[in-house]
């Protein structure tokens, strides 16, 4: 797993019950890299990835992707504190990429397909709830 994929897997980790996939394992790293580069953040990202790798080597003598989940999250929080905005700068493209993924949608109990062309059924609702409103005198001002 690349450093970025390993980071994404800490930002949105797999859920303990295994229902929700981790963001890194979902293969979103390329899309996130592209989105960040598209807004002029290529150097910012490279710099931060290097800082995280250096911190992992310093603290654990291994690469970030090799760390146990608990150590990885703690390390990411430490580096994020020292470099404010590191994680925040990835959240917007990550939340979009993750939550529009069909596997994630299905894990949420949604259909995991575009809304069109099937659409969705929807309850018409109980229009007898209008009875008290129907019973009211006209509300509009007479002119």
């Amino acid at each position: 797993m690349s450093t970025l994929a390993a980071i994404l897997d800490q930002i949105i980790p797999p859920s303990p019950d295994g229902r929700m996939p981790g963001a890194g394992a979902l293969g979103l790293a390329d899309a996130i890299e592209e989105a960040i580069a598209g807004t002029g953040g290529r150097d910012w990202l490279a710099d931060n990835l290097a800082a995280i790798e250096a911190a992992a080597q310093d603290a654990h003598g291994t690469s970030f992707g090799e760390l146990a989940a608990q150590d990885a999250e703690a390390l990411l929080r430490t580096v994020d504190e020292a470099r404010p905005g590191l994680v925040q700068g990835m959240l917007f493209p990550l939340y979009i990429a993750y939550y529009q993924h069909p596997d994630v949608a299905r894990a949420l109990g949604h259909e995991g397909r575009p809304p069109h062309p099937q659409g969705y059924p929807l309850e018409k609702g109980d229009l007898s709830l209008l009875d008290p409103v129907r019973a009211r005198a006209p509300l509009y001002r007479q002119v």
Binding site: I11, I12, S15, E73, L91, F92, Y95, Y98, Y99, Q100
Partner: peptide, 23 residues
């Protein structure tokens, strides 16, 4: 809201953290 909208809303209102508490 849709799933993405819910996540962004949760982020902007400080309701959804990243990391182990996210889901």
């Amino acid at each position: 809201m849709g799933p993405v909208g819910s996540a962004l809303f949760g982020m902007s209102q400080g309701l959804v953290p990243w990391g182990s508490g996210h889901h």
